[in-house]
């Protein structure tokens, strides 16, 4: 079954999505994880501040700071199912839906992209997590995005 397993998508900025398909009778149970970095403490004020309470980041000497980002996870579970054409005997109709799943209780559609074995959900492409590298590559991109964000702020 082409859907079973874990798929990883990235919004290009601060959020990675991991969705895992498990068989559940005629449909799928899908666990959706949203992963993002959050700074452990508030950023320091870019121009310093007179009010230490606003600024609880880890301060070193000489107004230098260490910022630690912690990966956070929001999880939820939903379902996906094959779409049954109105006329099941019509091969053309069946063909039309062969790469689509009704997702999240019918709220959206998953499209399976044959040519590169990816999923398309809400404008985001998901790659099959064939090795931990797929996830780690995205984590690196998310870390870069955070570094750039800090460079812009400070």
């Amino acid at each position: 079954n082409k859907y079973l397993g874990t798929w990883v998508g990235y919004d290009g900025n601060n959020v990675m999505y991991r969705i895992t398909f498990q068989e559940n009778g005629k449909e799928y149970m899908v666990t959706e994880d949203k992963l993002f970095y959050k700074s452990e403490k508030n950023y320091p004020s870019p121009h310093g501040t007179l009010f230490p309470s606003i600024d609880d980041s880890v301060k070193q000497t000489n107004n230098t700071y260490n910022i630690n980002f912690i990966l956070q996870k929001d999880s939820r579970t939903t379902t996906a199912r094959e779409i049954t054409p109105q006329n099941e005997k019509d091969d053309k109709e069946k063909d039309k839906y062969k790469n689509q799943l009704s997702y999240d209780e019918g709220r959206t559609i998953i499209r399976y992209i044959e040519k590169d074995n990816t999923l398309l959900i809400n404008g985001i492409r998901y790659k099959k997590e064939t090795s931990p590298d797929v996830t780690n590559d995205i984590l690196k991109q998310m870390q870069n995005a955070k570094r750039i964000e800090l460079e812009t702020k400070f």
């Binding site: 452990e40 996830t135 400070f154």
Partner: peptide, 14 residues
């Protein structure tokens, strides 16, 4: 303000 070090904690994945 100088950002001296940026660290990332991914322990949630392990």
């Amino acid at each position: 303000v100088i950002i001296d070090k940026i660290t990332f904690d991914d322990s949630i994945l392990t």
